[in-house]
């Protein structure tokens, strides 16, 4: 690559996108460099399979970069790429119908009774020996607990607390009302608190 790093570091995502649109290959590579890790990390924690996460990340970047002309610079590039990645992961999980029953009941439950009726008790999930070993460390326990969340909660909690995205941006990425995003994050944290309670004892 002919370009040097400091040259790119001074440019915003929008400026790099403009260079990519003018046919500069190094600008495409710079966008990949900036977002390959966060997008891959999000997808890996969504699908919990390295190879699959890599395929989905590749699909995400190819889709985004081939449609770079349709990106609107008034929105954050990060929101756009996370949206494409999250949609790819959710579509895949829906197709695979993973075991993602919420500990707190359906996210669409309106009343406490409805939530109780659709709730799943902690311990109902069959843990493999591998899961048990993984859960011995806090990080592993958190990874496993996040993996047991329903996909919508998982996206919200990862974008909020791993990527540090504000609620408004998460709402934009997931195409959800702001209030729903807050509810999902609170419910996800509640589920994680219950799932990790045994570590405190």
């Amino acid at each position: 690559m002919a370009s040097s790093r400091p040259e790119w570091d001074g440019l915003s995502d929008q400026q790099v996108v403009l260079l990519a649109r003018s046919g500069k290959e190094t600008a495409y590579r710079e966008l990949i460099r900036r977002y390959e890790r966060p997008v891959f990390a999000l997808l890996f924690r969504m699908v919990r399979d390295r190879e699959l996460a890599e395929d989905l990340a590749q699909e995400t970047f190819v889709k985004a970069l081939n449609a770079i002309e349709s990106y609107r610079p008034e929105f954050k590039f990060s929101s756009w790429i996370f949206k494409i990645g999250n949609n790819a992961a959710i579509d895949h999980l829906r197709r695979r119908e993973l075991d993602t029953l919420s500990l707190d009941g359906s996210p669409h439950a309106e009343t406490p009774e409805a939530m109780q009726a659709t709730a799943l008790q902690i311990g109902a999930r069959q843990e493999s020996p591998l899961d048990t070993v993984e859960a011995k460390e806090l990080g592993g326990a958190i990874e496993a607990a996040i993996g047991s969340l329903r996909p919508e909660y998982r996206s919200c909690i990862l974008l909020r607390h791993v990527e540090g995205r504000p609620y408004e941006e998460i709402a934009e990425i997931l195409n959800l009302p702001l209030g729903t995003v807050k509810t999902y994050i609170h419910r996800a944290r509640n589920e994680l608190r219950q799932a990790l309670a045994h570590l405190k004892e």
Binding site: I32, R37, F40, A41, E54, F61, L65, G139, G164, L196
Partner: peptide, 23 residues
Amino acid sequence: GIAALPLISPAAGFSDRVMAAVA
């Protein structure tokens, strides 16, 4: 604990694999 989760990266050559499919 969530914020301290390890950073993970795709395998080497990810950028090249993406660029091979980008027009």
